[in-house]
């Protein structure tokens, strides 16, 4: 972890603020539609499946599967993250997919596979920002 933290930081908007505030408390909150029962990501104040405004936040388990990934060795000119790093799509057990990093594992294709079980790890990268990262479930 570089000190100070130099990778891009998110700046919440009113629609996404509850998500980021929950992460700071080390909780993963998603939204679910009361009309069609779909959980979805990223946050917005209506359901992208049926456009209903009847949506509510709920606390997700933080468990999921590695849907797909890349191991990044070369990045562009702007500071991103120390290489190599694993850029991952996580399929949460509640349904939605989100982008994250996989940590706690060798950044090597022989150590990684699609559908491996993962769980959330809260990374307090600054005083204001916590990111949802994931690590393999031990013994899985």
């Amino acid at each position: 972890m570089p000190d100070p933290y130099e990778a891009p930081l998110p700046k919440p908007t009113p629609e996404t603020r509850p998500y980021w505030d929950a992460l700071r408390k080390h909780e993963l909150h998603l939204q679910r539609c009361g009309a069609c029962n779909e959980a979805y990501f990223y946050p917005r104040n209506f359901c992208p499946n049926c456009l209903s405004s009847d949506v509510a936040w709920f606390q997700a388990s933080g468990r999921g599967r590695l849907h797909t990934f890349t191991i990044v060795h070369v990045t562009g000119p702007n500071p991103v993250l120390p290489v190599p790093y694993v850029l991952a799509m996580i399929e949460l057990e509640e349904g939605p997919c989100l982008m994250s990093n996989l940590v706690g594992v060798e950044p090597d294709p022989s150590s990684l596979w699609c559908e491996m079980l993962v769980q959330i790890e809260y990374a307090d990268v600054t005083e204001e920002c916590t990111l949802a990262r994931f690590r393999p479930v031990e013994g899985a």
Binding site: P8, P10, K11, P12, T75, L87, M99, N101
Partner: peptide, 28 residues
């Protein structure tokens, strides 16, 4: 922009050039 959707939900995890995107399709 850090308050765009990409700035919030992708850039913090190291989405850089296009190679960090198309690889996700290739791996799957």
């Amino acid at each position: 922009p850090s308050d765009s959707l990409g700035g919030q939900f992708e850039a913090p995890f190291g989405v850089g050039g296009p190679a960090t995107r198309y690889t996700l399709a290739a791996t799957r």
